[in-house]
């Protein structure tokens, strides 16, 4: 299991703890900063944050996406066989944009051997269905692999109403986001807005 999966499992075991209200903008910003802080490529981070509405409408999904961000973001290992793209064991945050890219580029089926957080992948696919005005069919095999293909019809799960967010998710994302902050110095402070003036003028 990845570090993110272990963390998410633990949160679920303890019932996710207290929950707090957060605006969608806050969830979006936290995901964006945390993604960058965790080393996820910028474009992937943006894709993840853009689906904030899906994540923030389910505390359980929120725990999953935090776990997905926490993972080490290694490049995908994939190979094409005919009109199928096979992706080896991967993280949802790295895989989801690649899956959508492939399907929108005439790949018939994307097969994922194992995804750390399938629900995060599905949320990102839900959003992509709307963005591209398409349907995806997702099939999970007995071995746990996922096959994703473009379908003529299907179900589109839209972002729901905002739910309370587990405090543990906020804390974990904040901690990752903080990795992008530069410690303040006197020199940096002197250059910001409002610096260098008597403000009682």
């Amino acid at each position: 299991m990845t570090a993110g999966e272990i963390w998410a499992k633990k949160q679920r075991e303890i019932g996710m703890g207290p929950k707090v209200r957060a605006s969608l903008s806050e969830v979006f910003a936290l995901l964006l900063k945390a993604g960058i802080g965790s080393g996820l490529p910028l474009g992937h981070t943006q894709a993840l944050a853009a689906a904030a509405g899906w994540f923030a409408s389910s505390p359980d999904l929120m725990i999953s996406v935090v776990g997905a961000v926490m993972c080490e973001h290694t490049p995908l290992v994939s190979h094409e066989e005919g009109d199928t793209l096979e992706i080896e064991e991967c993280g949802a945050a790295m895989a989801a944009p690649a899956v959508v890219d492939a399907l929108m580029d005439n790949t018939k089926t994307v097969r994922l051997d194992r995804v750390d957080f399938p629900d995060v992948l599905r949320a990102l696919l839900d959003k992509a269905q709307r963005d591209y005005d398409v349907y995806f069919a997702v099939e999970t095999t007995a071995s746990g692999a996922m096959n994703v293909s473009v379908a003529k019809t299907g179900e589109r799960r839209e972002a729901g109403e905002l739910e309370l967010v587990p405090q543990a998710a906020i804390d974990a994302l904040s901690s990752l986001a903080a990795k992008t902050f530069v410690p303040a110095t006197a020199a940096s402070r002197e250059k910001g807005a409002g610096a260098g003036l008597n403000d009682n003028d």
């Binding site: 490529p41 910028l42 474009g43 992937h44 943006q46 894709a47 490049p75 995908l76 994939s78 790295m94 944009p97 690649a98 890219d101 492939a102 929108m104 580029d105 790949t107």
Partner: peptide, 18 residues
């Protein structure tokens, strides 16, 4: 070839591509 293959190899460029 298509950008989908390029971006699998170079995911760091996704934001710039967009």
């Amino acid at each position: 070839g298509s950008l989908s293959a390029f971006l699998r190899k170079h995911p760091q460029h996704r934001a710039a591509v967009y």
